[in-house]
Structure formats: C-alpha cells, structure tokens
Design a protein around this nucleic acid. Structure first.
Length: 670
RNA sequence: GCCACUGUGGCUUAGAGGUAUAGCGACGCAUUGGUAAUGCGUAGGUCGUGAGUUCAAUUCUCACCAGUGGCUCCA
C-alpha cells in the first residue's frame, strides 16, 4: 500500500504516495480547489518540507481555509526579501508577515518608488523559476548569522528572552529568521504580484527608524491571481471617493476645511431618504425626536468628563470675545489660557464631540418617575472631532459628522430588552439594504482591571444582555474582553468596504457613567430615588460613513428608493418636448425624482451620458410613445420594455419605491 | 501627527527653465436621430498657495495647504 489518504472538508479523498511531503499535499489541494486550501497534518511539527511516513497521522483537515494561503504568502514574503537583498545589497530585511490578502515585508533601505517594483517582481519570478528548495535549519549561531542586521538581532534577543528558540529557513544563498512553516520550494511562488510601496516604522513606533514596506500578493495558480487583480480593479471603481465625484454625491472643499463634508443635492437625497426611513422606525419604537445645539459650555464637558481629558481629539474651545480681550490686556499667554480652561477658571464653548451631554440635560429637565422609563431620545446630531490629518479620508473618516444618535434612559431591569430593541433596529436597516456581510463585536470588561464604573453585578447583567442580543442576530460575533468602554459594555457592527478595510458602523453601548456624573435620577415605585442607566445607540454610526460605505456597497447603483434621480426622461427628437414635459410633471406629482433631457443630441449619445449617473430607469419617448400615452422603459442593466402605459409605469415604480426593495420591477427573462 | 508620493481649465490628462496640450463636459450653429459617442465652431487655465534662485519659473529650492498609500490613532 503505502498510500496516505487525506479527507477534505468537501468529502473528497485524495491519496498520496508514501514519501510525499506535507507541503506537496497542501499544494496539491490548493491547486485542485476543493473548497479548502490547506490541510493540517499532524505529527509533522508543522514543517511542510518534512517527508511524510507511512504511519504518519494525517487526520486534521482545516476548516479554516486560510492556513495554506498563509504559508504561501509568508513564503512569498521571504522570496521578496531574497529579491530585494540581491538587487539592493545594502537593504536589511526586518519583518515580513502574511496578511489578509497577501503579504508585506519591511526593509531598512534607501527610498525606492513604484517603478522599482517591477524589477523586484521580475527578480522574484526568476528566483521562483529557479525552483530553490526551502529548508529549515536549526542553528545555534543565529547572532553570528545576522550580525549585520540589528533588526534581526533585536528579534533574536527578544525570542531568547521569551525562552523561545528560533530557526532559519534557507533558499539558495538566502536565509531568513523564521519559525515556518514554508512551502517546499520557491517554484510554488510563481504567481506573485507586487502591489504597492509604502513606509512604516520599525515596530510601529514613529520614534523608530522609518522602513520601506512593500506589499504584494500571491496565489497557487495564475487564474486565482488574475481574478484577485481583477477584483482589485473592480474595487477601485467602486471607491466612494471616485463615485462620490462622478455621481455628484458630495464635495470636500479646501476652502471649507479638511474632513468636512458638503452634501450636494444628489447625495443629500440619499441621506434624507435614510433619515426619513429611520425616523419612521423610531416613531414606531417609541422614540422621541429632540434637537440640540452644535455647541455647549465647557463646563458641560467637564461634568461629562470629556474635557479636558479628550482635548486632543476636539476642536479647540470658543472663548467669549470680551473675556478674550480682557485676558489679552492682562497679558495672558496661550498656555495660561489653556491652563485656566482646563482648571475651570474660565469658561467657553465647545463644538460638541458627542450628543449625550445635551441629552442628559433634557432628561434632567423634569422630575422622572419609573413610569417614564424607558425614555428614548433621538436626534440626528452633528458632532465634531479633531481627527489626525493623516487619518482623514473621503466620507469614512471625517471631522464633522452626523450621528443617527439616540439615548435611552432605562432602569437596570430594562437594559436587556432595550439593548435587544436597538439591535433589532440595526438588523432591520441592514436587512433592507442587503448588507449581510458584517460582523459583530461585543466589548466586555477586562476582568483584571478595575477601571470600570458601575457595580460588578450590573455589569454582569449588561454584558449578558449584550451577548444575548448579539447572538440573536445570526451573524458571526466575537466577545472581546477588555474592549468595553470604561463606562459600560457595547455591541459594535463592523462592515468591510471594497478595499477590505473594516469600518465600524452601528454601535450600542451601555453607560453607567454619565447618569452618575450628571446625577440623573428617577423616582422608583418604592418612592426612593434611583439611578437610571443610559444606552447610547447609533445604527448607522454616522450618516457620512454609512453613506460612504453604501456607495461602495451598491457601486453607485442605489436601489430605486435611494436613487438620487429615479427616472431620466430621454426624448428621441425635439418633437416630443411637449409630451416629455407632461410625463415629467406626472411623475413629479407622483413623488418620483425625475430629470429630463430634451436636448438635440442623438438618442445613443443621451443614453450613454445618462447611464453614467445611474438612474434606476430611463424612459425613452418618441413618436410612438407620445401617440399612445406610453413610455419605453430602459432599466439599469439594459433590459427594456416598450409601450408601457405611463400609469402602469407609475404604479410599478411607486410600489418598488414604497417597498424599499433592491430588486427592480423590470426584470426580463431573456 | 509621522514617513513616502502627488497637485496643470468642471472631469480625465500631455508637456517642458522662456506664461501650456488633447479628449470629455459647457456654450453656439447645423442636424430631428429609436437604445453605449452626428458634424463644425467658440469660450474656459495667474499650471495648489506663498517665498527664494534666475535675465526669465508653472517647470529648480524651501515653507505652507490639500489629496493618495501606509504607520499611529479613532472616547
């Protein structure tokens, strides 16, 4: 016999001859796309170049399909280091891990740029073709081997301190410090592509040396690589910054300021529709709408604890004119001023970095009884935060944004039910928008820490409520110890954008702190005064970030109810001007967002132009339509239906809009 | 904030030490066309901002502003 049978997750069984290496098995599986990409093979000490013996126990097949890719990617990182050190003799490799969609390697070297990547990539491919065996070596002389590379020496001494040994992997003349495992030969790394170049700091600390980071990706076969590159191209096209410009959804003006979004008419429609939608849901769930100003006194934030503690991430305070004048006459310096503000010796106003302090004052404006609870106050509240300049990006990371915020003032007993209600709201919204690819993080206490506000008993209940609510969603969720805010546990919703970056959107947070700080109370049934608990929640997170992610989610092709313009009317000749005006007016009366093009361009030209703006439907009007009170409909995907009575179209599109469906009514079965 | 790169009419872009391309778009004229670009013409730019070098700068240098890719950060 001497065959080794490997059972794959999809049930298939592969057989291998005795003497095969674990690495070869992994790559055989990778190549055959069995719905998994790797096998764990026990008894091989995770070294994929070790030969398997007949009695070897090959039992574990990874459900986690990432492991094989991880090995491949990490091996490619080594190949990159080999190529770079051969091309740039002075370059010192530092660290080069596998990451989600590929790998990177950081080098201490002279600056290079994008154009140099091609040469490095070529070198990698020629090394790969060389079919160098990748072998593990145990060496006691690591310090000597890497004596020219202080970065590696640092890693080695760290490992020694941890009591962990280390090994090296050798391919040709190149060797690198590594615990493995690796693919058995560089030949497995043919389908490699370098993507970008950037800088990073040694160990992520900006006080350390700046390193050149090269990103790349690698796949077991060239079709997978091609597809990945195609996906990247596709993602670029969906980038909300590009689409936001093309579709005229928002604008950022240097004159207004960095990270400050100007919602242009077409983008404002999307935001307004979303707000209307959520406002309606809130009404059903017993929320009260409130409005509060964009600024508040510094003292408000001293009480809440946000000032001066979070001063770094706030716009500087506004000081009254007369006071400033007086201080300046007194020869007060900037640092004096800052100290006086911090100490509370002078007051001023702060652009609000969050809405909760204002809402607490609405709560406190009346005596509250347990019968009033839960009290749910909702506001689309605009807040301002001083994000670091390098962090600001498009709509997803901005300095002024509007949260679809609400604060629930509840009794401890009500927490579970109300948290669940908040979660359900998020679920409704994500469901309507077809955003099913998200994950949930439940932030819990770090049991070792005592920084938390509130009773341990209360926390137990609140955490249990968060976990129960999260698990009711039926999507992956993680419980993350130590990720809770100091004031309470939370549930966060995390969605990926097209480039693979994760964005936190909605959040639900339990808060024991603010009610304490603002001394909020309610009268219980027992006649005693009690402390309410606050729940902060924002299902979208912020309108800016949410719409940014939505633009990418829909690639600009919004469902009809969200489309900035739902119908574009296109006439075939100027003779239909009058009929077009009538159709336009009729649609407008029916509450449909419509735009007309009666210019004397050709029909083909007009369709081409208007397609770019992605209206849900185009109506083509010619002689025939005008004569019969009909329209010809052209959907976004190009399907068309001729001679539909106008009234029929209005009925159909109105129903589509009303139901907020993402499926167009016009679907032909061709 | 840190590192690297980038910044030319509304958009996409060519170019170079002697004030600058082209396409789309806009506007005008002709054209009245049935589903992804009809033809011709016109207008539109102090080449991100400020300073320096130079006989001369948009092109070189510096600072600033903004964007991109990362790093760090995100109550």
């Amino acid at each position: 016999m001497g065959m080794i049978a490997v059972t794959l997750p999809d049930g298939a069984i592969n057989e291998y001859a005795k003497g095969v290496t674990a690495g070869e098995i992994v790559f055989d599986i990778l190549g055959k796309k069995h719905g998994c990409v790797a096998a764990t093979i026990n008894d091989v000490e995770s070294d994929f170049s070790t030969e398997l013996h007949e009695d070897c126990n090959v039992e574990g097949i990874l459900a986690d399909s990432d492991a094989g890719m991880h090995i491949l990617r990490h091996s490619a990182a080594h190949l990159l280091a080999q190529a770079v050190t051969e091309l740039y003799p002075g370059a010192l490799p530092t660290i080069g891990p596998a990451i989600d969609s590929g790998f990177y390697y950081d080098f201490a070297m002279e600056a290079i740029d994008e154009s140099d990547l091609k040469a490095i990539e070529k070198k990698m491919q020629s090394l790969a073709r060389g079919n160098l065996t990748i072998e593990r070596e145990d060496s006691a002389e690591l310090q000597t081997l890497f004596q020219a590379n202080p970065y590696k020496l640092e890693i080695i001494s760290d490992k020694l301190e941890d009591g962990a040994g280390s090994t090296i992997y050798r391919q040709g003349d190149f060797y690198d410090l590594c615990l493995g495992p690796h693919v058995p030969s560089t030949a497995k790394l043919m389908n490699v592509k370098l993507l970008s170049i950037s800088t990073a700091y040694w160990r992520g600390d900006q006080n350390n040396a700046s390193l050149i980071r090269i990103y790349g990706t690698v796949f077991p076969d060239k079709h997978q690589l091609k597809e990945h590159l195609r996906n990247l191209e596709e993602a670029k096209k969906r980038d909300h910054r590009k689409l936001g410009k093309d579709l005229q959804l928002f604008h950022i003006s240097e004159k207004v300021g960095q990270g400050l979004i100007l919602w242009t008419p077409r983008g404002a429609v999307i935001r307004q529709e979303l707000q209307d939608f959520i406002a309606k849901e809130l009404k059903r769930q017993g929320y009260h709408q409130v409005f509060t100003p964009h600024i508040g006194k510094l003292d408000l934030y001293r009480t809440s604890g946000h000032f001066p503690y979070y001063q770094e991430s706030q716009y500087p305070p506004v000081i009254e004119r007369d006071l400033l004048k007086k201080l300046s006459e007194d020869g007060c310096s900037c640092s004096d001023l800052s100290n006086m503000m911090n100490d509370g010796d002078i007051d001023g106003y702060l652009l609000k970095p969050m809405n909760c302090p204002h809402h607490t004052q609405i709560y406190a404006s009346q005596l509250r009884s347990y019968r009033d609870l839960p009290l749910r106050l909702a506001e689309f509240g605009t807040v301002y935060r001083w994000e670091q300049s390098g962090e600001i990006s498009g709509m997803t990371r901005v300095r002024g944004f509007t949260q679809d915020d609400a604060h629930l003032f509840v009794t401890e007993e009500q927490i579970a039910k109300e948290v669940l209600g908040c979660i359900e709201l998020v679920q409704i919204i994500f469901g309507i928008l077809g955003m099913n690819d998200y994950r949930v993080r439940v932030g819990l206490r770090d049991p070792a820490s005592d920084k938390y506000v509130g009773t341990s008993d209360g926390w137990d209940k609140a955490e249990a409520a968060c976990i129960a609510a999260a698990s009711s969603l039926g999507v992956p969720f993680t419980e993350e110890e130590g990720e809770a805010a100091f004031y309470g546990p939370k549930v966060d919703f995390v969605v990926k954008d097209v480039i693979g970056r994760e964005w936190q959107l909605g959040t639900v947070q339990v808060d024991y702190n603010l009610p304490e700080r603002f001394d909020l109370t309610y009268q219980g049934a027992d006649g005693e005064s009690h402390r309410p608990v606050m729940i902060h929640r924002a299902p979208f997170g912020s309108m800016e970030r949410f719409v940014g992610v939505l633009i990418e989610h829909f690639a600009g092709k919004f469902p009809t109810w969200l489309s900035p313009t739902q119908v574009h009317i296109i006439t075939i000749s100027e003779r239909q001007k009058e009929y077009a005006a009538k159709v336009h007016a009729t649609l407008k009366d029916a509450g449909i967002r419509v735009e007309s093009d009666t210019s004397d361009n050709t029909i083909g030209k007009k369709i081409r132009t208007h397609r770019k703006m992605q209206p849900a439907y185009m109506l083509i009007l010619g002689e025939e339509e005008a004569a019969s009170d009909c329209v010809s409909i052209r959907a976004r995907d190009g399907t068309q239906v001729k001679d539909v009575p106008l009234s029929q179209f209005i009925t159909d599109i109105s129903e589509e809009i009303g139901s907020k469906t993402a499926t167009p009514f016009l679907v032909t079965n061709e």
